[in-house]
Structure formats: structure tokens, C-alpha cells
């Protein structure tokens, strides 16, 4: 037990250091963007948030598949924890995105494929969390959630594709997204570092969240034992 606690502590400390360094890189090390200025610094935390939500939803799907195959309850717990973190980060993406877009594109929102897909993703996983809380039978609820989580994740590329087709005529705003799109080397380093830091942040949050589910589980088991 003590060893596990130590591992948590180490993980938390590493994440803390990484995120702090990421902040330093994003605000001081990286040069200001030529046209967008300092607002562009939102980018270093906006993109990693999108990345984390994507991993989180992938984990939901994977854990759902394993849960349906094995029926082991801990996979369901993992999926539930991951989905919550995914929704948290997709909300961050959806809030920081418009805040970045307003001063740069002079509009909060465009129906660009990436924006729209993020929004649909948010709707799907918010529905996922609602579904979890609306089923009274625990075992059945876990199965429903797993099925919905799998379909939701398979839906992501399909939604993206359909929206890209839908908006082909629309000029997609140029974001310093993917690699090699004229990003200064310092900026790329910063972005990569922030991606790493946020991945650690995700793992830490997931471990903490999963653990708290475990305590709830323990409590329920204890209560059940007492009643009998």
C-alpha cells in the first residue's frame, strides 16, 4: 500500500514539474507569433487539450471493448474515469478555441471540420456520462455505456469526414496546426513538450479518478456486507 502511494506521489510531482515547465516554455521561451501576437500562446495548451481528450475517448472505447469481452468491472471503472476527463478537456478545447479565434479571425466560431467535430464529440460524451448516471442497474448500465462508448469513438472519424465534405467550399482558416506549417523551431519544441506534459496530466488525473472510484466501490461493498 505504501509503495503504491509513493508511486502516486512521484507521478504527481513529475506531472507538476512538467506542466510548470510547459507554462514557462509557452510564455517565455517561445517567441510571439508574427501576425497573431501573444494570443497565439493559447495554442500551446489548446492543442494538447484536444490531444488529451482524443486519447481519453480512445481509452473509453478500448476499455469498453475489453469490458464487453471479459465482463470485469474494473474496465468499466476505467472507461467511466477516462470519459469524465475527456469531457473536461473537450470543454477546455471548446472554450479556449473561440477565445483564440475571436481576436485572430474576428469571430468566435466557424463551422470548420475540426471545430464542428470537437463540438459533436462533446455532445456524444456528455450523452455518455448522462447515460451512465441514468441507469439504475449497475451491471447493465456498464454494458450500455461500453456499447455507446465504442460507437461514439467509431463515429469520430466519420463525423470529421462528413463535415469536411460538407464544408469543402468554405475557406478553412489557417491554423499553425500540423507539423511543418511554418512553425518556428522553438514553437514546435514548446508544443511537443506541452503535448508530453498534458499526456502526463491525463495519466495522473486518470489514476486519481480511477482510485476514487475504487474507494466508492469499497464503500458499497462494505455497506452491502453490513446489510446482510
Amino acid at each position: 500500500m505504501k509503495n503504491i502511494k509513493l508511486t502516486y506521489l512521484v507521478l504527481i510531482v513529475i506531472t507538476y514539474m512538467l506542466v510548470l515547465t510547459g507554462l514557462y516554455l509557452a510564455f517565455i521561451y517561445a517567441p510571439p507569433e508574427k501576425t497573431m501576437g501573444d494570443v497565439q500562446r493559447i495554442f500551446y495548451f489548446h492543442v494538447p487539450s484536444a490531444w488529451v481528450s482524443f486519447i481519453a475517448f480512445f481509452v473509453v472505447c478500448l476499455a469498453g471493448i475489453i469490458f464487453l469481452k471479459t465482463g470485469k468491472e474494473q474496465w468499466d471503472r476505467l472507461a467511466a474515469s477516462s470519459a469524465e476527463i475527456g469531457v473536461l478537456f473537450i470543454v477546455i478545447v471548446l472554450i479556449t478555441g473561440p477565445l483564440w479565434a475571436k481576436p485572430v479571425w474576428n469571430t468566435y466560431w466557424t463551422w470548420d471540420p475540426r471545430l464542428t467535430t470537437s463540438f459533436v464529440l462533446f455532445l456524444i460524451y456528455a450523452a455518455y456520462l448522462m447515460l451512465r448516471s441514468y441507469v439504475s442497474n449497475k451491471e447493465r448500465g456498464a454494458r450500455f455505456a461500453a456499447v455507446f462508448g465504442i460507437i461514439g469513438f467509431v463515429d469520430v472519424p466519420i463525423v470529421y469526414m462528413s463535415i469536411r465534405w460538407w464544408r469543402t467550399q468554405h475557406p478553412t482558416p489557417v491554423i499553425g496546426g500540423g507539423s511543418g506549417s511554418g512553425l518556428a523551431p522553438e514553437m514546435l519544441t514548446t508544443l511537443m513538450f506541452c503535448l508530453l506534459a498534458f499526456t502526463f496530466l491525463y495519466i495522473t488525473l486518470l489514476v486519481l479518478r480511477y482510485q476514487s472510484e475504487g474507494v466508492v466501490k469499497e464503500f458499497q461493498a462494505l455497506k452491502h456486507k453490513l446489510q446482510n
Binding site: 500562446r41 495548451f45 489548446h46 473536461l88 477565445l99 475571436k102 488525473l205
Partner: peptide, 30 residues
Amino acid sequence: KILFLFLAYTFIWTALFIFLLSIARKLTFM
């Protein structure tokens, strides 16, 4: 423009903080 940057970062950290707080509260309660 800096205001937008400030708002975005404030939101990120508040959201993370609230999430952690909710886990912590649940844990202590349990």
C-alpha cells in the same frame, strides 16, 4: 488580445482545479 489569452488560461486552470477538488471531496467524504 492579451485579455483573451488571460481568459483562456484562467479557464483552463479553474476547470482543472474544480475537477481535482471534486475528486478530493468525494474521496474524503467516502
